[in-house]
Amino acid sequence: MDLRLLSMLALLYLLAFLDRGNIGNAKIEGLRGGLHLTGPQYNWTLTIFFFSYSLFGVPSNLLLKKPRPSIWLRMIMVAWGVVMTLMGTVKNYSSLLTARFFLGLAEAGLYRGVAYYTTMCISFRDGVGNYARWHWIFVLEGIATVLVTIAAFFTLYDFPEAADFLTAEERAFVVWRLKYQGQKEGEMMVAQEKEFQLKYV
């Protein structure tokens, strides 16, 4: 049960963070120029997500108990998937701003819904090992964090040079790209310098 539920919820979290953060990638790929956005307009498109995300968190939590949690989570997943897809068709600042607002609205229920949903699964462990339900919330979530951290020890790399899943050619390319990508003539990038200097702060 844990393997099935937690793997799906982890995938949902991944998609949620990708969807809320991909506007940065879109900016790199020409969003600002394509929609003729000023700096403040772009900043508002980032910020408005958190207005609706914060405002509708509690109402979403209240609605969670009306339909079943699995139905509510599916409904908000479809809603944010549709909003995200439609965001790819926007033609101007106001429609992008509106889409980001509704993305925040749709995603507002995910975190709270998942927390409630996992707590309901954990509640069946009441009395196991002479521990009450609330004990198991901490124990199981703590164990999950430790297990992921152990996996991360073998899968996270400090530098491209140490990434043994890349070929020598791929490592050289990543190092080159970090050094020169986005560099304007005559300007130095932080990634280009190996030593720390206070001016980078």
Rank of each mutant, 00 (worst) to 15 (best):
Q181F: 14
G186Y: 07
D158L: 10
Y180F: 13
P160F: 01
P160A: 03
Y157M: 12
V175M: 02
V174Y: 12
T167D: 14
E161N: 05
E193T: 07
R177Q: 15
K194Y: 04
P160M: 02
E193H: 01
V174M: 07
L178G: 13
D164N: 09
T167M: 01
T167C: 05
A163E: 13
Y157E: 11
A163I: 06
D164I: 09
A172K: 08
R177W: 12
K179N: 14
W176Q: 15
F165E: 04
A172Q: 10
E170R: 04
P160H: 04
M188N: 09
R177M: 12
V190C: 11
A168L: 06
Q181V: 06
M189G: 02
E169M: 00
D158R: 03
T167G: 09
W176R: 13
L178W: 11
F165M: 04
E187G: 00
F173A: 14
K184Y: 04
E169V: 07
L166G: 06
E161T: 12
E193K: 07
E185L: 08
D158M: 00
E187C: 03
D158C: 03
Y180A: 05
K179Y: 11
A163Y: 08
F173Q: 11
Q183C: 04
E187S: 09
G186W: 02
E187P: 04
R171T: 02
W176L: 08
E185N: 13
G182C: 06
T167H: 05
K184D: 05
E193S: 09
K184Q: 14
F173L: 12
F159M: 08
A172E: 10
E170T: 02
F165K: 08
T167E: 02
V190P: 06
F173H: 11
Y180V: 03
Q192M: 01
Y180N: 15
D158T: 07
K179W: 06
A191F: 06
